[in-house]
């Protein structure tokens, strides 16, 4: 009986420990290197959006140049 209770308690305990030991990029975050990744992705996004805006403007100019009937 004692052993069974002990087993249950210990197994519950091990579950808690396992939940905390899931490996995440904690070191990378604490060193601040995650901001390097964020900066790169934001720059790529900004570059692509900027590119899209220039295409948008070009199309607008073309639309203006077409004579209306």
């Amino acid at each position: 009986m004692y052993k069974a209770i002990l087993l249950i308690i210990l197994s519950l305990f091990s579950q808690v420990i396992l939940a905390q030991e899931v490996e995440m990029a904690d070191t990378m975050r604490s060193e601040g290197k995650i901001y390097v990744v964020v900066a790169i992705l934001v720059l790529i996004l900004a570059g692509l959006i900027g590119y899209l805006i220039t295409i948008d403007k070009k199309v607008s100019n073309l639309e203006k140049r077409i004579p209306k009937k």
Partner: peptide, 24 residues
């Protein structure tokens, strides 16, 4: 544009559940 910027920044920096197998 604003939502996508928020997605990249928040998506990388905000907390997510700590799950095995999928991790980050």
């Amino acid at each position: 544009v604003l939502l996508l910027a928020y997605t990249v920044i928040g998506g990388l920096l905000f907390q997510v559940p700590r799950l095995s197998i999928v991790n980050e």
